[in-house]
């Protein structure tokens, strides 16, 4: 059996599989399908300093091999999370990653302070396309990425992952900006900004008109970006974007990711996370690779 442990910015995960923020809630629903302790880490739904109502429905649209969503970071706020969800989550033997969001830099700093060291890692959500303020506006400008990373890092008591937006012309530049701001790790990609129109009604399917594309459709874009970021920075990378099988995950590892997140696939198959983990292990065993870390970045380019 291959070694599956990975170390992300000093935090040891028992295996390289985590959840894509926003696809897994706070874990309660999928714990009815498998034990959360099976995962290397659980990346929680975005939290803000104050509760957010999110956008009206329809919030989801089906697209070829994927979905568009426009949930808009609905969440009960950090205070309610700490009181009602965290004690329950702590029973599991897995690492917890809090995804932090806000409308201003001060909001991000505030939620990071509220969360303190209650979880194992933070993931800075500066790449959500579904909010009017903050979100992707921060994540598509290198200067802003550096500034917000620096300010949140200054108050973070746990390692800080910066989640990058794919809606940029040069992903490597954004990665370097996060590194310069003091990020401990990077995760990518967030969703691609998209739109679907119902030709019968001649209106967008989503109430919010536009939304974030995820699922197998985005995978080649994500693999390419992980590869480019790997070439640009030395930080640990959590790769994601359409991962549905173990082979998908291996592609990300070969491109340079140190761990992977499964998200949209779980919306279709509630066991996707566990299946991907098992299939990674099976691939390693079949190929006589003793340690999952041995294949990271091992793609041989033409």
């Amino acid at each position: 059996m291959a070694e599956m442990k990975v170390n992300i910015a000093g935090v040891e995960w028992k295996n390289p599989v985590t959840t894509g923020s926003g696809t897994f809630g706070f874990g309660r629903e999928y714990n009815e399908y498998f034990n959360l302790s099976e995962l290397g880490a659980v990346c929680l739904k975005a939290l803000s300093a104050v509760p957010r109502l999110g956008n009206p429905s329809p919030r989801i649209a089906e697209t070829p091999k994927g979905i568009l969503n426009s949930v808009g970071l609905q969440n009960p706020g950090a205070e309610v999370f700490l009181e009602r969800e965290l004690p329950w989550l702590r029973q599991f033997d897995t690492k917890l990653i809090a995804n932090l969001c806000g409308s201003t830099i001060e909001d991000y700093v505030k939620v990071a302070e509220m969360m303190g060291d209650s979880v194992d890692m933070f993931e800075l959500n500066i790449s959500c396309p579904n909010v009017k303020e903050g979100g992707m506006a921060f994540g598509t400008n290198a200067k802003m990425i550096e500034e917000i990373t620096q300010k949140v890092k200054a108050v973070s008591k746990v390692p800080l992952i910066v989640k990058l937006s794919p809606n940029v012309t040069d992903i490597a530049e954004m990665a370097r900006a996060a590194e310069a701001g003091g990020a401990d790790a990077l995760s990518l990609i967030n969703t691609l900004f998209g739109m679907k129109i119902d030709v019968k009604t001649r209106r967008p399917v989503l109430y919010n008109n536009m939304g974030g594309l995820s699922g197998p459709a985005v995978k080649p874009v994500a693999v390419r970006m992980v590869y480019q970021v790997r070439q640009a920075v030395k930080l640990p990378i959590i790769g994601m974007g359409g991962i549905t099988t173990g082979e998908d995950a291996i592609e990300f590892l070969l491109a340079g990711a140190n761990a992977v997140a499964v998200g949209t696939a779980g919306i279709v198959d509630p066991y996707a996370w566990i299946r991907v983990r098992d299939e990674i292990e099976a691939y390693l065993d079949e190929n006589h690779i003793k340690d999952v870390n041995d294949i990271v970045g091992m793609v041989e380019m033409h």
């Binding site: 926003g22 999928y30 919306i267 509630p270």
Partner: peptide, 14 residues
Amino acid sequence: ERMGCGVGACVTCT
């Protein structure tokens, strides 16, 4: 409502 996961996690069918 247009639905995703069906189990309450993705919060799309609100």
